[in-house]
């Protein structure tokens, strides 16, 4: 199945893209993160939350359909 992955803030800088499509089997959020960190080593040190179809989810959430995955980092600036 095909996922749409969206990167925000410094995560978009770490991957050098705002958005991409990714082919994957059914997996948990943590398995997906592991895969993305392998692909983009600069993500390894980053802290972020994951939203599936605009809803924040836990790392144990299972991705079993073609959804939009957003990686949301915290921002400090003001």
């Amino acid at each position: 199945m095909q996922l749409t992955i969206k990167y925000f803030g410094m995560l978009a800088e770490a991957t050098t893209i705002n958005e991409e499509h990714l082919q994957t089997e059914v997996c948990s959020v943590s398995q997906l993160i592991k895969k993305l960190k392998n692909q983009y080593p600069k993500l390894d040190n980053a802290d972020f939350k994951v939203a599936i179809d605009q809803q924040l989810v836990d790392q144990s959430h299972i991705i079993n359909s073609e959804v939009e995955v957003a990686l949301l980092p915290p921002f400090a600036g003001g």
Binding site: N45, D47, P73, P74, A76, G77
Partner: peptide
């Protein structure tokens, strides 16, 4: 939203990276 703060120094400020 963010239960734990990010690792210190991992998220730059406006002074460090601009805005």
């Amino acid at each position: 939203l963010f239960p734990e703060p990010p690792k210190a120094g991992s998220v730059p400020s406006c002074a460090e990276i601009g805005v």
